[in-house]
Design a binder for these strands. Sequence first.
DNA 1: TAGCTATATAGCCAAATGGTGATATATGGA
DNA 2: TCCATATATCACCATTTGGCTATATAGCTA
Lengths: 110, 110
Amino acid sequence: MDDKLDAIFSALADPTRRAILARLATGKATVAELADPFELSQPAISKHLKVLEQAGLIRSGREANARPRVLEPAALKTIADWIADYRRFWDQSFDRLDDYLSKVQGYEND
Amino acid sequence: MDDKLDAIFSALADPTRRAILARLATGKATVAELADPFELSQPAISKHLKVLEQAGLIRSGREANARPRVLEPAALKTIADWIADYRRFWDQSFDRLDDYLSKVQGYEND
DNA sequence: TAGCTATATAGCCAAATGGTGATATATGGA
DNA sequence: TCCATATATCACCATTTGGCTATATAGCTA
């Protein structure tokens, strides 16, 4: 699991890769579409995509001769869960809010 | 701000540095105390601490000839905020919960 | 002041990272 | 079948990273 965190955090430590994720947050995109905003070669983008995919942050599909990418949210949740352990350090109301929510009956998690 | 995210994510992409943060979550610690659990040289630990400090994740103090480190939660909040933009992708109840909370009068943020 | 302790810094090295241009591969269409 | 398009992979290079040992620096204590 430590290896997984290594891969995810290090994948996110690059602004190009974060921009790619932001683009994928608006929906599926081909490599060419993902490369378009950047002044980088196509192989450079493919390398970034491989890093993101190996970290589990995206997935590849197949449509004709294109290989569209989609966001894979589970990896983001992994680090969100990691960071949640530190939330009490910056959010003083967190403990009480959490406690409050655990007693509320009006919301569901289906 | 992109530079800040680069520095924070890349600082977190190392298990030694994450372990150091976990230790600091239990309170202030000297370099020697932080180095103790690892089979690494003291300079290696000092390097890791420098990376964490430059990312804003920790701060140095001064006590006699020791330089204790403390957690600096703001940097963690920075990436928590970044990741929150993606929360809707994995947490289907998030939008509704958020909506629900905005209507609730029973909790405060003081 | 001399020496001990805590930590930082310097200089070095191997491996990983991020970029390049050139080329290989897979699919669909003429 | 031949070609165009989309993407991956290869070989290379410069820079960064993470480790080491040796040494410097700062504060305490005798």
